[in-house]
C-alpha cells in the first residue's frame, strides 16, 4: 500500500505557485501577440492579391500541421544560428506560442468573417465606406461576437500546450513540478498535485466558456467553430 505524503509538496508550494504564474504569463503573452497576428494572417488569406493570400495560407497551414514541440525546439535551438539573437527559453516560448496560436486564430477569424452575410459588406459599401472602414465598423464587430466560443476553446488549448516550455527549461508549472519531484523524491504527490492544479485551472476556464456560449446562444447569436 502506498503511503501518500504531501508535506514535502506543500512546504515548497510557493515553487509551484511561481510556476503557475509563469504558465499564465506565457499564455497571456501568446494571446496578446497571437490574436492580432492571427487577424493579420486571416485578412491576408482573404486578400484578393494572390501572392499574399497564398503566403498567408502556407504559413497558417505550416504552423497548424507541425507539432508545437518541434516548433519550440526550432525557435529555441535553430533560430539563434540563423539570425544573431540571444535566445532565452522565455523568448522562444512566447515567439513559438504566439505564432502557433496565431495560425489557429487566423482560421477562427476567417471563419467568423466569412460567416457574415455578404449584404453587410454591400450595405457598408453603399454608404461610401472603404474596405477598411467596412471591416472595422461593420464586419469585425459582428464576426468577433460569433467567434467567442471558438476563441475561448483555442485559448484553453493554448494554456495546455504551454506545458511544452518545460522541455526548454522555462520555469512554468510543469518544469517546477519536475524540479520539485527530483528535489523531494515524491514524484507521486508532486505530479498528482500539479495535475490537479492544471485540472482546476482549465476546468474553471472551460466552465466559463460554456457559460458564455450559453449566454450567446440565448441572445440568438449563431457561432462559428
Amino acid at each position: 500500500m502506498v503511503e501518500w505524503n504531501f508535506i514535502a509538496v506543500f512546504s515548497d508550494f510557493d515553487l509551484l505557485l511561481i510556476g503557475l504564474l509563469n504558465t499564465l504569463k506565457i499564455t497571456a503573452l501568446a494571446l496578446l501577440f497571437g490574436v492580432p497576428l492571427g487577424l493579420v494572417f486571416a485578412l491576408s488569406r482573404l486578400s484578393k492579391f494572390l501572392p499574399l493570400s497564398f503566403t498567408a495560407a502556407f504559413i497558417i497551414e505550416f504552423f497548424r500541421t507541425t507539432p508545437p514541440l518541434v516548433q519550440l525546439f526550432w525557435f529555441f535551438f535553430a533560430l539563434p544560428i540563423l539570425i544573431d539573437v540571444r535566445m532565452t527559453p522565455f523568448i522562444a516560448a512566447v515567439v513559438t506560442f504566439s505564432i502557433q496560436s496565431s495560425a489557429f486564430f487566423a482560421e477562427i477569424f476567417r471563419g467568423g468573417i466569412q460567416s457574415i452575410d455578404k449584404g453587410q459588406w454591400e450595405g457598408a459599401k453603399a454608404i461610401g465606406m472603404s474596405y477598411r472602414q467596412s471591416l472595422i465598423r461593420i464586419i469585425l464587430p459582428q464576426a468577433v461576437k460569433r467567434m467567442i466560443p471558438a476563441f475561448m476553446e483555442r485559448s484553453i488549448e493554448l494554456l495546455k500546450t504551454t506545458t511544452l516550455v518545460s522541455t526548454v527549461a522555462y520555469a512554468d508549472l510543469m518544469f517546477q513540478a519536475n524540479d520539485l519531484a527530483q528535489k523531494t523524491f515524491r514524484p507521486l504527490e508532486v505530479y498528482t498535485v500539479v495535475a490537479l492544479m492544471y485540472f482546476v485551472l482549465i476546468f474553471v476556464f472551460s466552465q466559463m466558456s460554456i457559460l458564455v456560449e450559453k449566454r450567446l446562444a440565448q441572445s440568438g447569436e449563431s457561432t462559428v467553430r
Binding site: K160, M174, P187, F199, I202, F203, S206
Partner: peptide, 23 residues
C-alpha cells in the same frame, strides 16, 4: 471526459511515467 480533457497531455504522460508506477 472532464478529467482527461481538462489536463494537458504532457502532464498525463509525465504522471503515468513517474507517479503511476509508485501508485
Amino acid at each position: 471526459v472532464e478529467v482527461f480533457r481538462n489536463t494537458p497531455v504532457l502532464v498525463q504522460i509525465i504522471w503515468f511515467y513517474y507517479a503511476f508506477p509508485i501508485l
